[in-house]
Design a binder for these strands. Structure first.
Lengths: 213, 213
DNA sequence: TAGATTGTTAATCGATTAACAATC
DNA sequence: TAGATTGTTAATCGATTAACAATC
């Protein structure tokens, strides 16, 4: 698939490709070799048409009676989402959330890995966590450059978020995932994604409220 | 605002209202009394038109020279998102992620609270965590009914997710927030929201990849 | 007044779904 | 063959943005 087309894949399709791969890896691990669009759809709670359309967009073709070849599709999604060299991320803030992230992510993907974790509390950086090296926050810039880290995951307290963001940007990070409820500002060349757990819980609460009245 | 209109607010508007309130509460705590649409917009990284449109949809009106009254707007968003009696949630899985959620949420909202946490490991339910009562998973149905809990937050391991979902549904829960990478199935009357940290990280990675080539 | 702001409609953009031809 | 499936275009739906009137 050519680079330019890849760049213009819909954002939602990118998200779903990640989810398809997750599901496909599971099926593959269980020895399944082929899968139909409606099977993927059912797992993801979406329609089969949408699955077929996404797969069409990345230029893959299934077979009429057998559906999609799982191995081939996993490989192709990898060519879209991954880079040959792999992408490195770091976690800033070794609290419950930071640990959850590291622990949960460990060994899940080969081309995307969390290679360092930082904290300003010296007691939290005395030893490594889940094979991830831990450092004092003051070492952030040095380590990010040394290891070639391009993504920062912010899991510190909201008050510390702006300062940490600045440090990450200064260190030359390319993308930031902010898990604090405090929106941060980044220059245009840095990709920013923010996620607030309160918002998602309030959204569920709203639908629970409106659907039960 | 009448009930029927509220039901038909766009999903995205609901999400943003939660975010506006979060920002407004902060401004209010700092003694600010009024705010312009472009100020809210800047904090949230969106356009001022969108802010005004959302506020229009909930039927609030600002003043031309002073913008929006922060207290009034907070109160109105509360009438949209909250219920008078409050909504109760529980966390299932007292690992790093479950703890992060409880800890982070503690005392943040008056009308939405996490009132219980469950785990299948007896060692994890010996004492309460951050003032949230902990119970063995076997007590889930009893406690959910007794306390009138309507939302379940799943933070167990992916393998345990389907079983936990079933237990929650059986206990009469109305909404589920699934933080495991394993999609779960719920009957139509239960509202389900799923969030996978790997997908959001892969999304950032994709944009880092495509923007730097 | 001129400039800044709100409120709102119409236009546009992006994403999903309906419809259907092709084929095994 | 009939039925199940894929691939793809066109239609629809939902969300954002442009444009602008009103007003302090």
């Amino acid at each position: 698939m050519d680079k330019n087309k890849m760049k213009h894949l819909p954002h939602k399709t990118i998200e779903r490709l990640s989810q398809y791969r997750r599901a496909l890896l599971l099926c593959h691990a269980q020895g399944q070799t082929h899968i139909f669009s409606h099977e993927i759809a059912k797992i993801q709670h979406i329609t089969a048409v949408q699955v077929r359309r996404d797969i069409m967009l990345i230029g893959y073709t299934g077979t009429l009676r057998k559906g999609y070849n799982i191995e081939e599709l996993i490989a192709l999604i990898g060519r879209i989402l991954d880079t040959d060299e792999g992408i490195k991320a770091c976690v800033v803030g070794i609290g419950n959330l930071g640990r959850a992230f590291i622990n949960y992510f460990k060994g899940k993907r080969t081309k995307l890995s969390i290679v360092a974790a930082f904290d300003n509390n010296p007691n939290k950086v005395v030893k490594n966590f889940c094979n991830t090296e831990t450092f004092h926050i003051d070492e952030l810039e040095r380590i990010v450059k040394q290891k070639g880290i391009s993504i920062g995951i912010i899991t510190v307290s909201p008050e510390a978020a702006p300062e940490v963001t600045e440090k990450l940007v200064k260190a030359g990070i390319k993308g930031i995932l902010n898990y604090t409820p405090k929106p941060v500002n980044v220059p245009a060349h840095v990709y920013l994604e923010e996620y607030d757990m309160i918002t998602s819980l309030e959204k569920v609460a709203f639908f629970v409220k409106t659907h039960s009245e």
